[in-house]
Design a protein around this nucleic acid. Structure first.
Length: 355
DNA sequence: AACACGGGGTA
DNA sequence: TACCCAGTGTT
């Protein structure tokens, strides 16, 4: 694809494909509703785009439905308790997104009268909204011809132009290619169409070029290089870290939990009291959070984070009613929901709970 | 520019 | 088990 004069024809072919193949999603306005002049709700667009950062459509769907059922408007979300939002986000990962989601909702209510700004630069100033999300909301919710570049778009552009420069160095080049294709009409549908194309046809492995509306103009198709693009600079191996967690159950069934610090790993989420996680296997253990007869479990909780593997040793104890914890708070059995825990802490619970 | 930050899926 | 995928904020 070298001829930029062909851009309008390319976008037209893509929109035609999109109208026939668009995936149904809870936050999308369907073709019939769009034809009737209905615009997407900016709150729904924003919420879905935050959830979709680094996360697949399949993982997001049920969370999006739960959030919009419980908090149907940005005003409702802004008024929510922090702990309720963090618990509802549990399992979705990248918990800074949930903290910024609440911050953003509160700024939109207090500084913008409850309406998301229809302006790329104003959106960019909001917590949790970066270049991708600002462009996505501009295009999808407000019909502004912003250029939306996510990992799908990068891959599609790398192949369309047979660009062999490795990411992330290639990002400005790929962004410029995407900008040249962005149409004045239906920019939101165009953006979603490129991302859908990347998610369903122009996939990382085994791209379905035979079904691609852009195959006739795709440079990588011509060169036979589609499957090896985009090139990426090699990533480094994940080290292993070790730690220990204390799971205390009081005789009345209450569990001893603490809210983790706002910043850092699993920030703001519930967790079991324990040690820091370090590179050495044999490290001094911190004092248990409460005096009891502690037993070490035979099995460790294993979990992989973005940049390290964790092996978490587990200690359990059954605690009499009259003890006071030095760390954490007992959560009564009827209030404790394992689903409110991030995945690592839920794995630890599943190994340690009485069976 | 490099790093921190989860979880799910496939081979 | 190992590898792949994917935006924002901080430093």
């Amino acid at each position: 694809m070298r001829d930029t004069a062909a851009a309008p024809a390319l976008s037209e072919a893509l929109l035609d494909w999109y109208d026939r193949h668009a995936r149904r999603m809870p936050w999308r306005v369907g073709p019939a509703a769009r034809a009737a002049g209905l615009r997407p709700d900016p709150y729904a667009v924003w919420l879905s785009e935050i959830m979709l950062q680094q996360t697949t459509v399949a993982a997001v769907k049920s969370y999006f439905e739960a959030f919009t059922r419980r908090w149907p408007t940005v005003e409702a979300l802004a008024a929510a308790e922090d702990a309720d939002v963090m618990a509802a986000w549990a399992g979705l990962g990248y918990y800074a997104r949930a903290r910024n989601l609440l911050k953003c909702a509160r700024v939109v209510v207090s500084d913008h009268g409850g309406a998301f700004p229809a302006d790329h630069d104003a959106l960019l100033k909001l917590p949790g909204i970066g270049p991708y999300t600002a462009a996505a909301i501009s295009a999808i919710a407000f019909d502004i011809p912003a250029t939306v570049v996510d990992g799908n778009v990068e891959r599609v552009m790398a192949r369309l132009h047979d660009e062999h420069t490795p990411l992330p160095a290639a990002k400005p080049i790929l962004t410029e290619h995407a900008r040249a294709l962005t149409p004045a009409a239906r920019p939101g549908d165009h953006a979603q169409a490129v991302m859908d194309l990347g998610a369903t046809i122009c996939t990382p492995k085994n791209p379905a070029c035979g079904l691609c509306p852009w195959r006739p103009v795709c440079a990588a198709w011509g060169a036979g290089t589609a499957a090896e693009l985009p090139k990426k600079t090699p990533k480094k191996a994940k080290p292993v870290r070790h730690g220990i967690a204390y799971l205390a159950r009081r005789v009345d069934g209450a569990w001893l939990l603490e809210t983790r610090p706002e910043s850092g790993l699993l920030g703001g989420m519930l967790g079991w009291p324990g040690s820091d996680w370090v590179g050495l296997e044999d490290t001094p253990r911190p004092a248990p959070p409460i005096q009891a007869e502690w037993k070490t479990l035979g099995e460790e909780a294993r979990h992989t984070f973005t940049h390290f593997h964790l092996r978490l040793a587990l200690c359990t104890a059954l605690v009499p009613m009259d003890r006071t914890p030095g760390r954490g708070t007992f959560v009564p059995a009827e209030e404790f929901r394992p689903a409110d825990l991030p995945t690592l802490m839920r794995k630890a619970f599943d190994l340690a709970r009485p069976r």
